[in-house]
């Protein structure tokens, strides 16, 4: 970094920037803009009627509500998993570490049929659960299970690097100052992990809200019972009610954007906090 930093001595800015903006506009921005333009075909009252009809509201409630619950389970389970993977040594640790990524890598349709077969009434887990009177497949509980599945990697992978980098000295200092293990974990370690946990939670939530492939097989897809919002979009499309489909999509998109926005704020907050502490 000697001398005056010139703008850049490297060539290719025009070409690469041009390519980037062209591809981004053609593939992502223009199609997404089309979505918003399409909604203008509905009048405001029509738009409100569409998104507040019983069936749509229920589908949105199912998608957002169950996604929130599933992300909560992912948060708790993710913390246990990441704690075990980072802090303890046990046989198969590295294999289980790799397994965490399977919900990312496994195509959603495969996950969908596998989870359905597993939790169907004659399935390996479905049968014992049925004897207890718990029906999973083709109920909202099934949707929840599928959402938990696809959300597993998020909390683990966002918290893992932070937990690895956590300074040993802080914990030792806490112990020296008389904190018991529980106090050290809840008052020293967890607060430093909080931003990463929140990020993982938000990512898992956002993913579960929009999830389609792994959910529709196990969902049952009964209107007003176990119908998710993405499926309702598909149904409206197949009925050629494009504007209705688009209205639901816009509600989902705007909500997702809000989630990203909050996510970015959390990260910025986490970074300034980390700088202030470190």
């Amino acid at each position: 970094m000697r001398g005056a930093p010139k703008r850049s001595a490297l060539p290719g800015f025009g070409l690469t920037m041009g390519l980037t903006l062209t591809w981004l506009s053609l593939l992502i921005l223009i199609p997404l803009a089309g979505l918003f333009i399409k909604t203008t075909e509905l009048s405001f009252t029509q738009f409100v009627d569409t998104v507040t009809s019983n069936r749509t509201l229920h589908a949105l409630k199912i998608s957002f509500g169950l996604a929130f619950l599933a992300a909560l389970v992912n948060l708790v389970a993710g913390l246990l998993i990441v704690w075990a993977l980072v802090r303890y040594r046990f046989p198969g640790r590295r294999i289980f570490d790799a397994i965490v990524d399977i919900p990312f890598a496994l195509p959603t349709a495969v996950a969908g049929v596998a989870l359905t077969a597993l939790f169907a009434q004659k399935g390996w887990l479905g049968a014992p659960l049925a004897e207890l009177g718990i029906k999973v497949a083709f109920t909202p509980l099934g949707i929840f299970i599928a959402m938990v599945f696809i959300g597993i990697p998020f909390v683990v992978r966002t918290v893992q690097p932070v937990l690895i980098d956590l300074e040993v000295e802080i914990e030792e200092a806490a112990a020296c100052l008389g904190a018991n293990r529980w106090q050290t974990v809840t008052r020293v370690i967890l607060p430093s992990l909080t931003p990463a946990i929140l990020t993982g939670f938000a990512l898992a939530f956002a993913r579960a809200v929009g999830e389609y492939g792994s959910v529709i097989f196990i969902a049952g897809n009964l209107p007003n019972v176990s119908e998710i919002a993405p499926l309702l979009i598909v149904i409206r499309l197949s009925e050629y009610r494009y504007a209705d489909a688009t209205a639901i999509a816009v509600v989902m998109l705007v909500t997702s954007f809000l989630i990203i926005f909050v996510l970015n704020r959390i990260q910025r907050w986490a970074q300034t906090r980390a700088l202030a502490v470190g």
């Binding site: 980037t20 981004l24 992502i28 921005l29 223009i30 199609p31 997404l32 089309g34 979505l35 399409k38 959603t108 956002a206 809200v209 929009g210 999830e211 389609y212 492939g213 993405p230 499926l231 979009i233 598909v234 499309l237 494009y242 489909a245 688009t246 999509a249 989902m252 998109l253 997702s256 954007f257 989630i259 990203i260 970015n264």
Partner: peptide, 25 residues
């Protein structure tokens, strides 16, 4: 620009298909 590049990650797959139906349907 970086945020826009990441955008497709936060769009439901169904909506990713829907936008092309709206363009070419």
């Amino acid at each position: 620009l970086i945020t826009l590049i990441d955008l497709p990650f936060s769009v439901s797959p169904v909506i990713s298909g829907l936008v092309f139906v709206l363009l070419f349907g």
